[in-house]
Amino acid sequence: MNRQTFLSLILGLFIHVGLLAQPTFFDHHIVEAVGFKNNDNTSLNNYRFIQNKSLYDEKWDTLAQPTFWRTLMRMDEDSALLNIGASRQIITKVAVTEWNALQEERKNAIRDSIRAHYGLSADARIFLTSGKKYFYDFQRVLPIIEKGIDAFKKNGVDPFYAQTILLIESPNKLQKSSVGAYGSFQLMKNVAIQMGLKVNGYVDEREDFDKSAWAASQLIKTICIPETNKMLVERNISISENEIWYKLLVLHVYHAGAGNVKKALEVINPIEGSMELITTLWQTEAGQFRNASQNYSQLALASLLELDALIYRSCDFIYPCVVDNNNESDEMN
């Protein structure tokens, strides 16, 4: 038996066993990327990830907004994209220094010409958004994704949320946001304390990955998902916890808070859960649900798609994992 035939048989066995062992509790596949090459192309590691086929089956990968953010995630901060705010349609790529050298009158004239060319209203926002490659350093977050997956599974929470939050919140380093969110899961101080963490002048347990992961999973389990379900029930919309639109809505609650998401839903008044619900949220402002909130699920999709691209570009093999169906909840020690 030659090596290629042997590998084919082994891969077939892995796939067969892996699919049989997939839990019905969550709609995802945990895969192991074997022989993952780092940026220096010298070290090899194995990492586990959540694979979401629905992103492609449902065409989330074809939307303009995730495509826009994926482009920025590959660009250095000295370059920027001139784009239409509402649709994230890319107009052109520019050098930041050249744009900054222009007089405000010239910048406004360029924006006005874009509005006229595309038939936009006079108040349509035209953004210049700089490259985000420096922030979305996914190589740095790879080693802790599987730790997040395990922590969320242990608490009975879909690990999709762990992987996604880690990708979009602090992928390059542990840092504090302008509003005070901190740690790998970017928890606000009051939320962290509510979830059982110690945050005071002497200690900040948001720095501890395991405790922060437990708190984030507990937040999703006890607040984000119940509040999302409550909003959907009030509108007679079916709860579909395994569908992408639902998971993105939960992420909006995680980021913006249930009150702000509820205000946004009151504006758009959806009658069913779907991709359209999410894409309409991207165009909606209500309360404190504004540009950063609109962007959140766009960044989630872009990050997940970029992770997939990185995996397939950088590893030798991808195997489905045999997973434990035991989803019993454990309390934090």
Rank of each mutant, 00 (worst) to 15 (best):
G259E: 09
N295V: 01
H255C: 01
K189W: 11
Q89P: 05
L120E: 02
N333W: 05
A101W: 04
A122F: 08
S293P: 06
F185G: 00
C315Y: 04
V31R: 00
S240L: 11
K133D: 04
Q89I: 03
C224A: 15
A64L: 15
S8A: 09
S8M: 06
V199W: 15
Y161N: 01
T62D: 14
L305R: 04
A101V: 05
V253I: 12
L81G: 09
S43T: 14
V323I: 03
Q163G: 10
M73N: 14
S177I: 01
N326L: 04
F26W: 15
I50N: 10
G156F: 12
I90Q: 07
V261H: 05
S240E: 15
M195A: 11
N236G: 11
G201Q: 09
P171A: 02
S113E: 05
A109R: 09
F36D: 02
V253H: 05
V250K: 10
A80I: 07
F185A: 02
A309D: 14
G196C: 12
E146W: 08
I193P: 10
S130N: 14
F152K: 02
E105P: 00
L120H: 06
T164D: 04
F25M: 10
I30A: 04
G156H: 11
Q89Y: 11
L301T: 07
G259F: 09
M1D: 11
Q194F: 07
A64N: 15
G119M: 04
I10K: 13
Q186I: 04
L55Y: 09
L310R: 09
N108Q: 15
H28A: 02
F138T: 01
D61Q: 10
A309E: 14
P143D: 00
A101K: 12
I168M: 01
F138K: 03
G12S: 06
H252F: 11
D112E: 12
K173C: 07
E58D: 15
V323A: 02
R125E: 13
Y56F: 13
A300L: 02
I91W: 05
L251C: 09
H29Q: 13
F185W: 03
L11N: 05
S240R: 14
E169C: 10
P23S: 14
R235Q: 13
E243Y: 09
K263F: 10
L7R: 12
A64S: 15
R125F: 08
A33C: 08
K147N: 13
Q186D: 08
I145Q: 08
E227P: 07
N190I: 09
I10T: 08
M275P: 00
V157F: 12
K263N: 11
H117S: 15
E243R: 14
D57I: 06
K189S: 10
F49G: 09
A192D: 10
Y312E: 04
Y47M: 05
